[in-house]
């Protein structure tokens, strides 16, 4: 009789303890999600660049607010990101040599492929489109395969 009673108490005590622990656990798991918002804040990274005709064939434009270069060649427009794939510095462009990064010396060919330094992958090409209002538009969050030129 006596033994049974202590046992019952133990069971109740353990049940209370474990419901407490699991309640705290669930609550903490919920709170642990706090640092990661459902929508990441940040500026819209779609850039309207105006009338496509203002870019001459054979020209290069450096678009600072979007961190990319816009090229217009014989085959059409293309945009290459200027954010180094190594650790995010901004690469410089030189006419014949392609791109070079000031931070740890990565170098890229004119179409973005890595030729030297620690960068793990090529500079991505960005998606171009013509906005309904006739402006050239670059989506810096969306990549297209290398060689996908955009004709207007």
């Amino acid at each position: 009789m006596h033994e049974q009673e202590t046992k019952r108490r133990d069971v109740l005590g353990l049940a209370a303890l474990w419901s407490f622990v699991s309640a705290i656990g669930v609550a903490l798991a919920g709170v642990a999600r706090l640092p990661k918002p459902a929508v990441l804040p940040g500026p819209l990274r779609v850039f309207k660049l105006g009338d496509p005709a203002q870019f001459a064939v054979g020209s290069v434009a450096r678009i600072d607010e979007g961190n990319f270069f816009l090229f217009r060649g014989e085959r059409g427009f293309h945009a290459i990101s200027s954010v180094c794939t190594h650790l995010g510095c901004i690469v410089a462009h030189t006419e014949d040599e392609g791109f070079s990064c000031p931070c740890h010396g990565s170098r890229f060919t004119a179409d973005g492929a890595v030729i030297a330094g620690p960068a793990p992958s090529a500079l991505p090409w960005l998606e171009l489109a013509l906005a309904p209002d006739g402006q050239l538009q670059v989506n810096a969050e969306s990549h297209v395969p290398k060689g996908a030129y955009f004709q207007v």
Partner: peptide
């Protein structure tokens, strides 16, 4: 990265 920055770029967050 997102845990550290709260976004994809270094900014207010």
């Amino acid at each position: 990265k997102q845990l550290l920055l709260g976004a994809n770029h270094v900014g207010q967050e």
